[in-house]
């Protein structure tokens, strides 16, 4: 036999022997020759969905109200004022979660002020610009959008792998207190006053 063909035949035979092993097509598989060895296989099949999950603040239907109270002695001083009403950081922040599995998640912010800032419902009171509301994330991998009257910057959570994002953080808010607005209650649960921020996460 041609030596090359012989080698090829031997290699093929060895490959068949190596893959044959003790696996038996019929079950129960049996072996009556020492050393005894039988294999049996089991197939797994898992269907995994495409999804995007996003949470800012309390779970459920609650919309957190971040409430800032500025002491008269500090108005316009530039001393930041921490809020209450969050579900993290002793009320100064909110828990944020973003889970997704189909590529880069993008988080954007819009608000209900129509680009004007937060008001009291009385036009003559003026507005508080959203640039006075600071939001800082506890994680650089899940940054918070910088709020503006127009909405805010875009935030890009860091992907865990090519397609998967699995990030959590606490976003902490403060009122920067760098201006002197009219006295009054700005924003609140009445979205028409401009105080409602909506964060939106999108994924390809």
């Amino acid at each position: 036999m041609n030596p090359t063909r012989l080698l090829a035949s031997l290699a093929l035979g060895a490959a068949i022997l190596a893959t044959a092993g003790p696996v038996h097509a019929e079950q129960p598989a049996t072996d009556t020759t020492a050393p005894f060895a039988v294999n049996a296989r089991l197939n797994f099949r898992l269907t995994y969905p495409r999804f995007l999950r996003f949470r800012v603040g309390a779970t459920g239907a609650t919309v957190n109200l971040m409430s800032f109270t500025v002491p008269a002695g500090n108005v316009g001083s530039g001393t930041p004022v921490a809020p209450t009403g969050g579900d993290a950081g002793g009320g100064t922040g909110v828990n944020v979660l973003v889970y997704g599995n189909n590529g880069q998640v993008t988080i954007t912010a819009t608000n209900s002020s129509g680009g004007l800032g937060i008001g009291t419902a009385t036009a003559s009171d003026g507005r508080i610009n959203y640039n006075q509301i600071s939001s800082v994330s506890s994680s650089g991998q899940l940054p918070a959008p910088v709020l503006t009257n127009a909405g805010g910057t875009t935030a890009l959570p860091t992907l865990n792998s090519t397609l998967v994002t699995q990030r959590t953080a606490v976003w902490t808010y403060s009122y920067l207190n760098q201006t002197i607005p009219s006295a009054g209650t700005y924003g609140g649960t009445n979205a028409s006053r401009g105080g409602r921020v909506t964060y939106t996460a999108t994924m390809p």
Binding site: A34, A37, N39, R41, T47, Y48, N102, S161, V164
Partner: peptide, 20 residues
């Protein structure tokens, strides 16, 4: 406990019984 890309995943485990 971990998030994975969407898809239909397949795999196999092999059980082995041995006796000297």
């Amino acid at each position: 406990t971990t998030i994975y890309p969407s898809g239909t995943y397949t795999g196999q485990v092999t059980y082995s019984l041995q006796m000297p």
